[in-house]
């Protein structure tokens, strides 16, 4: 991340994730990023954070249970690093649910990964033994790729 990058750490809770969202919104506004870019950043981080909150298994050897996000400006949008202390989860390998053919057969869950993979560019994952590290970029036009 560049010298102007900003980093903040939040608890893994609904309140912590709410505060994280407000922080991204504030940083994006301060940087003059477009509304679409900021929403794209908020959306992808919200999906990662919700997944950590709902499905991530707390690891005793990972230290304090938390999410750390770094935002950086780049030539084409915003670069984001998302680090969490929960169990391994690689969003680049997970397969998003296919669209339902009907409302009757639709599963209310499972759309977060689809949104993340549509809005995040250059999505990458690594694990350092105790932490998940996801990096990606939100394009300056903030638009999703076609599914």
């Amino acid at each position: 991340m560049d010298a102007g990058a900003e980093t903040r750490t939040f608890g893994i809770s609904a309140g912590g994730i709410g505060a994280l969202d407000c922080w991204i919104e504030a940083v994006g506004a301060r940087w003059g990023a477009s509304a679409r870019t900021v929403v794209g950043a908020r959306l992808c981080v919200a999906e990662l954070a919700a997944n950590v909150l709902e499905h991530g298994v707390a690891k005793a050897d990972a230290g304090p249970d938390r999410i750390t996000v770094t935002l950086g400006r780049c030539a084409d949008g915003i670069k984001i690093e998302f680090v969490d202390t929960r169990g391994p989860f690689d969003p680049t390998r997970a397969v998003a649910a296919a669209p339902a053919a009907s409302l009757e057969s639709a599963d209310p869950r499972g759309r977060g990964l689809r949104l993340l993979q549509a809005y995040a560019r250059d999505l990458a994952y690594s694990r350092d033994g105790t932490r998940n590290r996801v990096t990606f970029r939100i394009a300056s036009d903030g638009r999703a790729r076609r599914a």
Partner: peptide, 19 residues
């Protein structure tokens, strides 16, 4: 002004119940 998948989930559940 913002929606994430967890919000979408509630809309889908409601729509299924209504249907």
């Amino acid at each position: 002004d913002f929606i994430a998948s967890i919000g979408i989930r509630h809309l889908v559940m409601a729509a299924k119940t209504v249907a």
